Amino acid sequence: MTDVAAPSSVLWTRATTVLSQTVLISALLYYFGWVRSQATWSYFGVDTGLLGYGTADYALRSINSAFLPLIGSGIAALGAAALHRTVLGPAARATPSTRRRRMADATILVARVGGVLLMGVAVTGLLLPVAVGNALGVALPLSLLAAACLLSYADHLRACGHRPDRRVPPRTPGLRGLLLTGLALLGLLWSVALYAQATGQDVARSIAAGLRNRPSVTLYSAERLSITGPGITVDTLEQDRTKYHFRYSGLVSLTQTSERYVLVAAGWRKGSDAVYVVPAGDGIRVDITTR
């Protein structure tokens, strides 16, 4: 008798796997986009919560900050897998009397020593975040990632030495293997987050350096606003049939959403001039002129 429920069970398992991976990837893209955006706008003293960004906005802003390091990690993983498949793996499965086996033993020793040293660097950076961690920067999570990978690979090569037959499946990873895998993932996510933060800060400095090339803004308001700064002029409008009585010029747009305009003076200086978050509404009109 044929089990008709089996195909649907397989499809359900595959669907839930794909959905769980999609949710995880979306969450990571959201986080990396948030880190990049927060680093950019905190340079100007603006919290991203004021901008009303949604999930799609953060995901789109994560492209430049997350994809490059993740693609680089994937290429490095492919290179390491090719090296293992062609050189190190066969050497580990060779008999103890061969030269290839001695090369495998040397590789295991180097991987373990390197892993221990890099793990020591990571632990030192975590215990001394000011003196060591800040100086290492992105090298701190990368050392944690490399240490976990090297120690895991040394364990894998040692296990291969006891399984000369390729048809014998590898052993299920124990607690040590799970811990090393978790540390490797933590190091990868941490390093990508730091890269996203650095990318956001670079974007902010680029925006600040090119303010005069950004779209100029003329702001019309029904009420007087507390907007002052270098180069900003305020004109009182005396027309009878207009609801806008004040015109502010000399502003440039940092960014805008459906609910707010983020404006600064064309001669804005970090640390001395304000950033203006103006809510959109019936009493506000903004004319934007591209340069």
Rank of each mutant, 00 (worst) to 15 (best):
S216H: 04
G210M: 13
S221A: 10
A208D: 07
P230S: 12
N213G: 12
R214I: 00
Y220W: 05
G231M: 07
A222H: 07
R212Y: 08
I207N: 05
E223Y: 14
L219N: 01
T236L: 11
G210N: 09
G231P: 02
S206A: 13
R224H: 14
A208M: 05
L211W: 07
R214H: 09
S206C: 08
G229M: 02
V234Y: 02
D235H: 15
L225H: 08
P230V: 05
A208T: 02
A208G: 05
R214T: 11
A208R: 04
P230I: 08
T218G: 02
P230D: 13
R212P: 02
L225G: 06
L237M: 08
S221R: 03
L237W: 08
D235T: 14
S206D: 14
I232M: 05
G231W: 02
L211C: 09
A208L: 06
I227L: 05
R205K: 00
S221T: 05
R224A: 13
G229C: 08
A208F: 07
A208E: 03
L237A: 12
S221P: 05
A209N: 06
L225P: 01
E238C: 10
G229V: 07
R205T: 11
R214C: 04
L211G: 00
E238F: 13
G231T: 07
R224I: 13
G231D: 01
I227F: 04
N213W: 07
T236H: 15
G229Y: 01
P215C: 06
L225Y: 06
R224C: 14
T236Q: 15
S226Y: 07
I207Q: 01
P230K: 11
S226I: 09
A209H: 06
V217M: 04
P215Q: 01
P215A: 04
I227P: 03
S206K: 11
V217S: 03
